[in-house]
Amino acid sequence: MLMTSERAGNGNRPRLRYIVAGISVALMVGLLILLGWGLQNTNAPQPEAGMAPTFSLTSFDGETLALEELRGKVVVINFWASWCIPCRAEADELEAMSRKYRDDVVFIGVDYADTEKGALKFIEEYGLTYFQGPDLGTRISADYRIRGVPETFYVAKNGELRGVKIGPLSPGELEFKILELLDDR
């Protein structure tokens, strides 16, 4: 009886070894896939062309806006934060352009990694009237792969991305780009 059970135990040992080896290999493969996915995500380039990543943003006042619903209009998406010094340099121009092209261009201010108190103070300080909302969970900035603030993305009437400006806007640069996109049929 003892011999039978010993024999059965010895017979099971190679099978157990195969199971352990199989699980180890599966774990290693899984880890490699995760590593590859992480590396791909980290090194993926910033989108500058193709369809603009869609998102919906809830403003500090509680209104919600979806990018998809803005087809037919030029959209300017500006990522900013109250702690960002260069964002202050372009705030007045963004507001002036949003007022000038109110009927044809939608301006969206995406507040990146900020405190609500700081953001609201910034909006009040510069008298910003265009749509402003916090990037909750920094999901929108992750989709647009921003490297910092400020960054400004231009979206054509058909929803395609038509360029990005990394850093503060130069005087006249924003209007030049808006006119170019408005001419685009």
Binding site: A81, S82, W83, A113, D114, T115, K117, G118, T138
Partner: peptide, 23 residues
């Protein structure tokens, strides 16, 4: 700190971090 890589919020010296601590 959400914007400075690998910096705990209690030792981060940026303006943004001091605002978060205040929060």
């Amino acid at each position: 700190c959400p914007v400075c890589p690998n910096t705990p919020l209690d030792v981060c010296e940026t303006l943004a971090c001091s605002e978060w601590r205040e929060q």
